[in-house]
């Protein structure tokens, strides 16, 4: 039985009367790739905000490998082992790819601890591993701002690996990608499967079938259904919720 990586218990946030996420609970096991589905406005991104500390919850709790991380500061949650990839890829655009990854791979968060020029062996090893996984070796000295859309996404994913995130929150990792890029991303995620726990928001069902171990469906801020891909596709409540958009396709 795998360990529980992320336990979300009744989390919710009240934006002066409007509950974007309302008493949402789920348990994600270590090594699992969980896909989060839901129509626009279902609260998927807000849920990620709540886990990663961007938005402070007004109810419920989040535990990471048994340690409570509810409402800590963003950097504390990141240090605890949660990595986050944004819907609009966010990298350090004026730094080179190499510098981006060096910043991500640093094992030392404090200012004074980083007043040094050389990297230690562990950091170099991690750096090399990320470069190998993301196949960014040819563009290391390029400024991140000039990368293609796909490369930018992989760089950001690489930074999450580099920071040593044990749980990754990926918000639409294939948004705007070509079919080829999407497949490459799926392959990358499948390579990471087992070593990392992932919570992925995604709309592209072909991609979802490719990567998901389990799916959780959100509707109006609440937990609607959870199960394997086939189960979710057959689920009447999910069909009901998606009726307006003609069901999942």
């Amino acid at each position: 039985m795998a360990q529980n990586a992320l336990v979300i218990d009744g989390i919710g946030v009240d934006f002066s009367g409007f509950k974007a996420v309302d008493g949402f609970s789920t348990v994600i096991e270590e090594g699992e790739v969980r896909v989060l589905l839901g129509a626009n406005g279902a609260g998927k991104t807000t849920l990620m905000d709540l886990i990663s500390g961007k938005t402070k919850s007004t109810e419920g709790s989040v535990h990471l490998f048994g340690r409570e991380i509810t409402n800590l500061e963003e950097h504390q949650i990141a240090q605890a082992g949660v990595g986050r990839k944004f819907q609009i890829p966010s990298v350090f655009r004026d730094l080179t790819v190499r510098e981006n990854l060096i910043v991500a791979c640093a094992r030392q968060p404090s200012v004074l601890g980083n007043l040094r020029l050389r990297r230690n062996a562990a950091e170099r090893r991690r750096f090399d591993e990320v470069v190998e996984l993301t196949a960014l070796g040819d563009v290391l000295d390029r400024v991140a701002g000039v990368l293609s859309h796909g490369q930018t996404q992989w760089l950001e994913l690489g930074m999450l690996i580099g920071q040593g995130a044990r749980v990754m929150l990926l918000d639409e990792p294939t948004a705007g990608m070509t079919v080829g890029e999407t497949m490459k991303t799926a392959a990358l995620i499948n390579r990471l499967r087992g070593d990392y726990t992932m919570l992925v928001v995604e709309h592209d069902m072909a991609f979802v079938r490719e990567i998901a171990s389990k799916i959780t469906v959100m509707h109006l801020g609440k937990h609607l259904a959870e199960g394997r891909v086939e189960q979710i596709e057959q689920n009447p409540a999910v069909r009901e919720a998606y009726l307006g958009s003609g069901g999942i396709h």
Binding site: S52, E73, E74, A78, Q79, F92, D94, P109
Partner: peptide, 13 residues
């Protein structure tokens, strides 16, 4: 300077 949020989510204060 480039992206304060990205740096935060990498674990930097």
């Amino acid at each position: 300077r480039d992206d304060a949020n990205r740096a935060r989510y990498l674990g930097y204060d």
